[in-house]
């Protein structure tokens, strides 16, 4: 698929989304919201994918775990992948499930050698089951942990090398982690293996209500911040065009106002198209 700009799909935008004829527009959904047996949710996704390319962005596989991915969850994911034929399937470098509790967030860990083995194994199992490669997304980090054997970029690069997975570069997450943990976001992006990056996310964040900008929170509840747009340009100049997604999950505005941000991403992509 050519590298164009997409939008996180929200059911309340269904009619406008299906009717949108903008060149290159695609949509991304969380597969967990469509893991049902039948009914209007699946019918809606079926209609959407007949008009636009679709991407599945999982939040529930909990890849960072010595336990293997939940077989029932993986089977449901495979059913959706087989039925809706997304152009890309992605997950997170994080965990969310422990002792049969789902924690509703993408949780951190120490990037140790044994963790690398565990995550690489879980990516292998997932890709084997789905019969295709997946992309792995860098998380937003709020606390520094001890016990790292790898920088995050090294860890991700090693996963790419071992499993053949691709990367989903979430620039908003890089910006948040860099701000909270005090590193240079541009240097982080510069170190990501360019050929592995198959999708880019941008989204809005917010300062902590009490600490302000000392602690940035990945809310997906506001417009994309200017420094994130700058980092998008920065990354695109190095690696060239890739599918870019505007994510929004809280304070969801009208479809048209999200499309304004999506069009700005399309504009950023146009600037780095070969021959531009």
């Amino acid at each position: 698929m050519t590298a164009t700009a997409g939008l996180g799909f929200k059911p309340q935008h269904f009619e406008a989304a299906v009717a949108a004829t903008v060149d290159g527009l695609w949509f991304e959904v969380h597969p967990e919201n469509y893991m049902v047996q039948g009914g209007p949710r699946l019918a809606m996704l079926e209609a959407l994918r007949t008009t636009h390319p679709l991407s599945l962005h999982g939040v529930g596989l909990s890849l960072v775990s010595e336990a293997r991915p939940d077989q029932a969850h993986l089977r449901r994911l495979k059913d959706l992948v087989d039925r809706f034929e997304p152009f890309v399937v992605s997950e997170h470098l994080a965990w969310s499930v422990w002792a049969d509790v789902y924690h509703g967030d993408l949780l951190p860990f120490s990037r140790s050698r044994s963790a690398l083995d565990a995550v690489a194994c879980n990516i292998d199992i997932t890709q084997e089951c789905l019969g295709r490669t997946i992309l792995v997304e860098n998380p937003s980090l709020y606390i520094a942990l001890p016990g790292h054997d790898f920088e995050e970029v090294e860890f991700l690069s090693e996963l790419v090398r071992r499993s053949g997975c691709g990367l989903l570069a979430d620039i908003n997450n890089v910006y948040i982690s860099a701000s909270n943990l005090h590193f240079d976001p541009a240097a982080y992006l510069d170190a990501l293996p360019a050929t592995a990056i198959a999708e880019i996310h941008i989204a809005g964040h917010a300062p902590d209500p009490e600490l302000g900008t000392k602690l940035l929170i990945d809310t997906h509840g506001t417009a994309v911040a200017e420094p994130v747009w700058d980092l998008l340009d920065h990354l695109l100049r190095r690696i060239g065009p890739r599918p870019v997604l505007v994510e929004r999950d809280e304070n969801i505005p009208e479809f048209a106002s999200l499309m304004v941000e999506r069009d700005r991403a399309a504009f950023a992509l146009a600037a780095v198209q070969p021959g531009a």
Binding site: E66, W98, H103, S110, S112
Partner: peptide
């Protein structure tokens, strides 16, 4: 393992 101990304590 260290990862499992961490996840248990974090959870």
């Amino acid at each position: 393992s260290d990862l499992a101990k961490f996840q248990e304590a974090f959870a």
